[in-house]
């Protein structure tokens, strides 16, 4: 992860930035005056950890949405790089092109070959554009499906890492059937004979997320969010204004804890104090452990039974009353 001063701070993280600045000042003074200030510096560093803890303890849903979009937050390829060996990225949907917003390929996780697939966001302005801000086009979903079918053919488990503000709402995306591409993925994922683990690592918005999100186990990182639409778009439609995104985030109950409470996800993956961007190694390690645990739970089930159970799992989701 980037070290200070290259770190970026969200508005509610500003107190941490102030502490870093104080440390900087102390260091300068210490150098100039040749006085040992390591005790004071250590105290401030402890204060930073405390502050991180304080902030995470009282996050509003909207602040979690902000954390999930933190510019320093680890993305799919970062996790794959930290968790696995021998990642071999595979490209293209074999029909139209290679969508850079969706990545995938085989890698070794704890010695076992696994197919990893996920949306990828860029780490700087140029890359963000190239990755289309993690918004895949139909060819991205079709590439994901091709890779899933490849994994199924060779009987390898599939892990998807979800991080998208939504599928791309573009003119050409419609021409090439954005709806059909997502629908096809959802349908085919239901039927995959190999174990499928899905993890929302950041943003999980709408069909764009679910298009790689149907699995035997669905996990969520602690500060990720998952719902039917982004809080901004929900605000625009239901409140007819952009300024209700905080209220929308609250009303939609989109946090990992809410989702676990509803039984819509299976497990929450803990993040380092203050959020995943504070320690990539710890984040990746937590994620790896959760994936391995989830895999262990489902890997020995008979494939046909696993598909049945997967259908059953999603069939139970919903609330209604009967007269």
């Amino acid at each position: 992860m980037p070290q200070y001063p290259n770190r970026q701070f969200l508005d509610f993280e500003q107190p941490i930035k102030t502490l870093y600045e104080e440390i900087d000042k102390l260091k300068q003074t210490s150098e100039k005056s040749k006085i040992d200030m390591s005790d004071s510096i250590q105290k401030l560093e402890d204060a930073i950890v405390d502050k991180r803890r304080d902030i995470t303890a009282s996050l509003t849903p909207w602040q979690r949405v902000q954390l999930s979009r933190h510019p320093d937050r680890p993305y799919t390829l970062k996790y794959i790089g930290k968790m696995t060996n021998e990642f071999m990225e595979l490209h293209g949907d074999r029909n139209f092109k290679d969508d850079k917003a969706m990545v995938g390929g085989f890698a070794k996780l704890d010695g076992e070959t696994i197919m990893f697939i996920g949306q990828q966001k860029g780490i700087n302005t140029k890359m963000r554009q190239q990755r289309n801000f993690g918004m895949a086009n139909p060819e991205g979903y079709r590439k994901a499906l091709r890779l899933m079918k490849l994994a199924e053919k060779f009987n390898k488990p599939i892990v998807t890492l979800i991080d998208t503000p939504g599928a791309y709402p573009g003119l050409e995306a419609e021409e090439r059937g954005q709806g059909e591409a997502i629908a096809r993925n959802i349908y085919e994922m239901v039927r995959l004979k190999v174990p499928v683990i899905c993890v929302i690592i950041g943003e999980g918005a709408s069909g764009g997320a679910l298009g790689i999100g149907v699995g035997d186990k669905v996990l969520m990182m602690e500060n990720a969010w998952y719902t039917v639409i982004s809080p901004e778009n929900c605000s625009t439609i239901l409140w007819r204004s952009w300024d209700k995104k905080e209220v929308a985030a609250e009303q939609m109950k989109l946090t990992a804890r809410d989702m676990k409470g509803f039984g819509l996800i299976d497990e929450i993956v803990p993040e380092p104090i203050g959020g995943a961007h504070w320690d990539y190694d710890e984040s990746a390690n937590n994620l790896k452990n959760s994936i391995l645990n989830a895999l262990r739970e489902i890997r020995n089930t008979d494939p046909h039974k696993r598909v049945e159970e997967r259908i059953e799992k999603f069939s139970k989701m919903g609330f209604w009353e009967e007269e």
Partner: peptide
């Protein structure tokens, strides 16, 4: 999707597709 049902409405996409598979 019906936004007032949040993620529950999203999951209906998976639920209905699963039934179509059957």
């Amino acid at each position: 999707a019906r936004m007032m049902e949040s993620a529950f409405s999203l999951m209906q996409l998976a639920k209905t597709s699963g039934k179509l598979s059957q």
